[in-house]
Each structure stands twice: as structure tokens, then as C-alpha cells.
Design a binder for these strands. Structure first.
Length: 693
DNA sequence: CTAGGGGTAACT
DNA sequence: AGTTACCCCTAG
């Protein structure tokens, strides 16, 4: 560590900017991979992105939107795997629907386009289910999402027929591949939102010194820096090395001028120069190693330069050891998805989770220290100087090349892993407690869960390991939010960002097949389709800032505990929606559960949802209905939604951060969904009343 | 936008 | 029937 202290706020700010740069690159790369059909690489990048979510990050730009896009695509990417879940009861595609809703809301997608995509996903989901022999599930989904009025193409009849006859193979199912579906979804995303070229890449281009090698960069301005250290990025291949660049002061100045605004930097170049020189002088007097902390004092210009040098954003932190680029690029160890999940044994659990064969160094393992005290996923902090104990508290985030599953990356360990059911949930949305979905899922799933215990026990074990140490995680890409409710009250749950593995025997065979989709593009709304160039909200700058605050701000375990005790309902809902349970996952006795699973009530509720659907020529479902500011048909009083522990935590954190009364700010700062500022206010009122705060 | 009152579904 | 925890409405 440097002897002299630098402005912490500045450090923090710099860090956030840099993190965002890197984040942007990852998003860009992920999209590129997806586009190229390199789904394994895509998954790996998703892992990286997820790992980055815990980092302090500048919310400038469409950070949240990008996260949403990543969420969406990662769910789509895994949509043919019924045994994975991102949010507890949901299949990946159901999760995708939920994310779609957010996207549509955030981007103001035309209702028709929304419907089209929604239908495509739903249809694919049904097909996936049928092909997997999950006829009950398929039927449920079909009933729920497929309104009679929308069955213009007669698909419903066909699908119903298949379901009735329990036919998991039919020519119609082979019409198009799941891969096509993926690409269709990608196109939708691309029409919706054009991810701009990342700053770092722009800079590379503008500097015009792209290097393919991992040679240490040499700054013409001051060779000193370049020779100071073998950059931490040195062993980075792929993305990182591609970012190596040689800069001249002139080009730097030019680039700075062009891009500083973009990055929220207002410091004049000349001033930066002075600072840099000063910094350089100091560096020259300092022992090696000091450069590891450059970020603490870097000026924006330096940041850029350093970024150009491909120094990882977090290079000055203990987790700088994470070789992101390798993580991203390494796709050599992918197995079939089946293998990934079936082969996991207790002995190799960790290895596999981290995608690191025992005999290999573990370049893919990303270890990010997390603040065990932070129960707010978003307020998680990365420890910079981990002690041994702290290391124990790390979240191990590793790509899981074996599983080709971008989501199988974060593992949590809790003391109760054995009891834990073998699922881990990646939640992308706290709202996923849709009772209907849960109910639907329950039927076909229960058996699966039981069957999958042995297979995924190891996985959950590893997950639980991390869980034990990390109380929560930030909204992750793979899942945007892991629920933070895994308090002691629910020993057996986990909320890793890992999709849970629910595998039944038959699924093992069926799920992996490429699922076919019939024409998921009802060509009937051509007018609604955006042209590729359109970017409705390209420059939107979501107020929702991906902001991860330092640990000091994190809530305490004590608080969590208090929450667990006092907020019974919240806890319950939290469990029901995101976590799980226990040795008997299928048994849900909480009020929320009973509510959601009780036949009569459920039916009534479902009817209500349907009522709200209005008439569409396409399928309808509750999510699309509620999204996009919904049409006139939207019911005014939607189903009452219990507050989850995680949401409550966000709220608490928000109040702590912004103060009570700034509900809108709070709402924007956290990934609340279906919560208005007013809701937050009400909830806060309740919490105060309950002395939860 | 927020605060506060009131309504009410979902529970005991 | 009473309570709770949420949602909605309205005023400022």
C-alpha cells in the first residue's frame, strides 16, 4: 500500500469509472459472442459480468439496461434447459419473460413487439417442455399464456394436441432450432437497444495502436510507468490483450478531449497531466508494488491510459488476480450441458464450479471478496485487503466451462448445505414470486427436485459454501439479483446466482436437445418491428445506477437477523420466491406459498390475470400485460405482492443512503420491480411500524 | 414527487 | 371479527 493516502472518494470514483469501462467491454463482447453463436464464450463472459456486479461501478450510461440485456440473453441462452432456474420456480425462459418485461418497460417497446417476443418465448418454452416430456408444465404454460383469441395460427391446437397425446416429438417441433430462437431473441435485443462500442474499444481505435500481443505497453509520455510492473493484465489473453495500446500524449489528449465528457470527467487535460507527472515522480520513488495502487490516485486521464494498458480495473485489489480475460476467453473446457451437471461430484464440485480441472492452475477462478456483512446485494463490497478470515468469506465466482452455464458461477456455502436442496437460484427479479408461476412449476418440478438431489448436491454444496460467506450478491447478470433472504431462518436455501439444477431422470436426456421452435415470428406485426438501426432509448441513462458501495455502508448481520425475526412475511415471501427451501422443497407452508399454490385461490388469481390480459391477437400473459405501462385492460389493483427480504434490504439501504422520503431516488437506485416510490414509502412505513428499522 | 389516510385482501 | 401488510387515492 502506498504510504500516502489518496483521496478515497476519488479513488472510489475512479474505480467505478474503470469498472464500468470494463463492464462495457464485457457486455459488448458478450453480445458479439452471442451473435456469433459462441454461446460458451457468451456464458463465460456472463460470468465475468456477474462477477463485476459486485464492484463499485459508475452508473453512467446504460449500465442497468446492459445488465438487463445480459440477463435476458443469458436466460434465453439457457432456455432449453428446464433443469436450470434463474429465479426459483421459474424456468429460464420464464425468467426471460420477466426480464423481457423490464426491458420493455425500460425501453418502451411497442406492445406488439413485446407480444411477439413474449409469444416467441412462451411458445419456445412450451415446446421445450413438450420435448422434454414435461407435458403438465407445457399445458400449464399454454393455458396461462395462450389466450384463445391469440391463437391465430392454430398453434395452440397443435400444441395442445401434442400435449394431450403426450408426444414429445413431432415434425412441428423440429421446424426450427433453438439456435434460431436465440438469434431471433438477439435480433430483438439489437433492434431494441444498440449497445454502443465500449469506451475502451473506441479508445483503442482512436489511438490506432491496437496490439495483438500482450506486450507491456509503453507510454511515450513516460516510459516509466510501463516498466514499472508487469501489468497485472499481463497474463490476460483475449479481451485484455486486445486492449493493449500504445498511446502518445497527443493521441491521449485527443482521446481525452473526445471522451472525457462521455465519462463524466471534467478535469482539464493540463491538470491531469500535472497530476500524472506528480504521480509518476512519486512512483519512481516508491518500491515496486506501489503501482498496484495506482488506481487510488489516478486521474481520469491516467485511468484511460491505464485502461489502455489493459490493466484490469481491479488490479489494485486482492481480487486483481482474477484473470478476467481468461475467464472470458477460455472456452476449452466446456462439456455438454448434461455432463456439466451430471458429472459434478462431491469431490470435484469446486473444481467444476470454478471450471478448473484439478491439474490445472485456476485461471478461470475469480475470487471476489465480498463483504459478509453486507446483506444487500447491491451494497456489497469487495475487500481489498483480505485477511485469511476474509478470504473465507469470499464469494467464489468462477466460470463453469463444464456446464456451459453462465450462471453456474457463484457459489455460496452455508453451514446447512446438506439440508439444502440442490437448487440454487439465480434471481433476476425479486418479483418473480408470481404465484402462478410457482404453482405451475411445482407440479412437474417436485419430483425433479427430489431426483436431482444427488446430482446437484455437490453443486449446492459449493454454492452454499459461498453462500455462507456472502450474505448477498448484487443483482447479477445471470441473475440479476440474488435474493438476500437466506438468513438463518431458512437453512436450506441458497440464492446463488447459479441457476438451480432440477434434473429429473428423463430430463437429463431431453433437456439438452436443441429445442425446435415453430415459426416464432408471427409475421403479422411487421410494422412494429423496429428496424435494426433504431435505438429507441439508446442514450437513455437509467437513473438506476449500478452502484456498489463500500462495505462500511453495508448493513450488518445483526440487522439481517432482526429482519429475519421481525419480518416474517417478507421472509416468507422471500423464500417462496427466490429461495428455497429445504429438504422438502415442494412443501411450502408459508402463507405466501399457500396462497400461491392453493388451487382455488390460485385459479381465481389466474383468472384475474387473464382478465387483465385484454384481447390480443397473440398470446397474452401477465408479464407482458403488466409491463409497458400496460394497456387499458390492466387491472388497477394487481395482486398484492409481499415484500421480500431482499427488497426490504434494498429499501433499508436506500433509506440509509438517500434518506427517508427520497423514495424515487431509492427506487431508482435498486432493481426494484413493480414497486413504485409510493410502494416503497408504504413499505417503509410498515417497516417502521414493525420496528424493523 | 411525497405524506398520510383509507381501503382491503389475506391472514389469525 | 380483528389484524396485518399491502395498495390506492388525494392533497400539497
Amino acid at each position: 500500500m502506498r504510504a500516502f493516502t489518496l483521496n478515497p472518494s476519488r479513488m472510489s470514483e475512479d474505480e467505478r469509472i474503470i469498472n464500468r469501462w470494463y463492464f462495457d467491454v464485457c457486455v459488448f463482447k458478450a453480445l458479439e459472442s452471442f451473435k456469433n453463436g459462441d454461446y460458451t464464450i457468451f456464458g463465460n463472459i456472463i460470468n465475468v459480468i456477474e462477477s463485476m456486479v459486485v464492484l463499485p461501478m459508475d452508473g453512467h450510461g446504460d449500465t442497468v439496461l446492459k445488465l438487463r440485456v445480459m440477463q435476458f440473453l443469458s436466460r434465453i441462452n439457457n432456455g432449453d434447459k428446464l433443469d436450470l432456474t434463474f429465479e426459483e420456480p421459474k424456468t429460464p425462459l420464464e425468467s426471460a419473460l420477466a426480464v423481457l418485461e423490464y426491458l420493455c418497460r425500460e425501453l418502451d417497446v411497442p406492445q406488439r413487439e413485446q407480444q411477439r417476443v413474449h409469444n416467441a418465448i412462451t411458445e419456445m418454452l412450451i415446446i421445450v417442455c413438450i420435448k422434454s416430456g414435461e407435458f403438465e408444465k407445457a399445458e400449464e404454460i399454454l393455458k396461462r399464456h395462450f389466450s384463445a383469441a391469440a391463437d391465430s395460427s392454430g398453434k395452440k391446437k397443435l400444441l395442445v394436441n401434442l400435449i394431450r397425446r403426450r408426444r414429445s416429438s413431432h415434425s412441428v417441433l423440429q421446424l426450427s432450432s433453438y439456435g434460431d430462437f436465440k438469434q431471433d431473441m438477439l435480433e430483438f435485443i439489437e433492434r431494441l437497444y444498440c449497445v454502443p462500442e465500449p469506451f475502451l474499444m473506441q479508445m483503442l481505435k482512436r489511438a490506432g495502436h491496437l496490439r495483438a500481443t500482450a506486450e507491456p505497453m509503453t507510454s511515450s509520455r513516460e516510459g516509466r510507468r510501463s516498466t514499472q510492473k508487469p501489468s497485472a493484465a499481463e497474463d490476460h489473453g483475449g479481451v485484455s490483450s486486445a486492449m493493449r495500446v500504445q498511446l502518445s500524449l497527443q493521441s491521449l489528449r485527443q482521446v481525452y478531449g473526445e471522451l472525457s465528457g462521455e465519462c463524466g470527467v471534467s478535469v482539464p487535460f493540463s491538470q491531469l497531466l500535472e497530476e500524472v507527472e506528480m504521480e509518476a515522480q512519486q512512483q519512481s520513488r516508491e518500491p515496486p508494488g506501489a503501482e498496484l495502487h495506482l488506481a487510488l490516485s489516478e486521474t481520469p486521464m491516467e485511468q484511460m491510459e491505464r485502461a489502455a494498458e489493459d490493466e484490469p480495473p481491479a488490479a489494485h485489489k486482492p481480487y486483481a488476480g482474477m484473470t478476467i480475460s481468461r475467464l472470458v476467453m477460455e472456452d476449452d473446457s466446456q462439456l455438454s450441458e448434461d455432463d456439466s451437471q451430471n458429472n459434478v461430484t462431491a469431490a470435484e464440485e469446486e473444481t467444476q464450479i470454478n471450471g478448473v480441472p484439478p491439474d490445472r492452475p485456476s485461471p478461470q477462478r475469480v475470487i471476489i471478496g465480498s463483504d459478509p456483512e453486507s446483506d444487500n446485494p447491491e451494497v456489497q463490497t469487495v475487500r481489498r485487503t483480505p485477511t485469511d478470515e476474509q478470504r473465507e468469506n469470499r464469494v467464489i465466482i468462477g466460470s463453469d466451462p463444464e456446464s456451459d452455464d453462465p450462471e453456474v458461477q457463484t457459489v455460496r456455502r452455508t453451514p446447512t448445505d446438506k439440508q439444502r436442496e440442490n437448487r440454487a437460484i439465480i434471481r433476476s427479479d425479486p418479483e418473480s414470486d408470481d404465484p402462478e408461476v410457482q404453482t405451475v412449476r411445482r407440479t412437474p418440478t417436485d419430483k425433479q427436485r427430489e431426483n436431482s438431489v444427488s446430482e446437484s448436491a455437490c453443486v449446492s454444496k459449493v454454492r452454499s459454501a459461498a453462500q455462507r460467506s456472502t450474505r448477498s450478491s448484487p443483482p447479477s447478470v445471470g441473475d440479476a439479483h440474488r435474493s438476500g433472504g437466506e438468513s438463518s431462518s431458512t437453512p436450506a436455501r441458497h440464492l446463488s446466482s447459479t441457476p438451480s439444477v432440477r434434473r429429473s431422470d428423463k430430463k437429463t436426456h431431453n433437456n439438452r436437445r436443441t429445442i425446435v421452435s415453430s415459426d416464432e415470428e408471427p409475421e403479422d406485426h411487421p410494422s412494429d418491428r423496429r428496424t435494426a438501426g433504431q435505438e429507441p432509448h439508446d442514450d437513455s441513462d437509467p437513473e438506476c445506477v449500478l452502484e456498489v458501495r463500500p462495505a462500511v455502508q453495508s448493513s450488518t448481520p445483526a440487522r439481517r437477523s432482526r429482519d429475519a425475526q421481525s419480518d416474517h412475511r417478507s421472509r416468507v415471501s422471500s423464500e417462496s420466491e427466490s429461495e428455497v427451501h429445504s429438504t422438502r422443497p415442494q412443501v411450502r407452508s408459508s402463507p405466501a406459498d399457500s396462497r400461491s399454490s392453493t388451487g382455488g385461490k390460485h385459479s381465481a388469481k389466474r383468472a384475474r390475470w387473464r382478465d387483465a390480459s385484454g384481447t390480443h391477437e397473440d398470446w397474452s400473459d401477465e408479464e407482458s400485460l403488466f409491463s409497458a405501462a400496460s394497456g387499458p385492460s390492466r387491472k388497477k389493483k394487481s395482486t398484492r405482492k409481499l415484500w421480500t427480504l431482499q427488497e426490504s434490504d434494498w429499501l433499508k439501504e436506500g433509506v440509509r443512503r438517500f434518506g427517508a422520503g427520497h423514495w424515487e431516488q431509492i427506487r431508482a437506485a435498486f432493481p426494484f420491480t413493480e414497486r413504485t416510490a409510493c410502494n416503497l414509502k408504504d413499505r417503509w412505513r410498515t417497516m417502521v411500524k414493525l420496528k424493523m428499522v
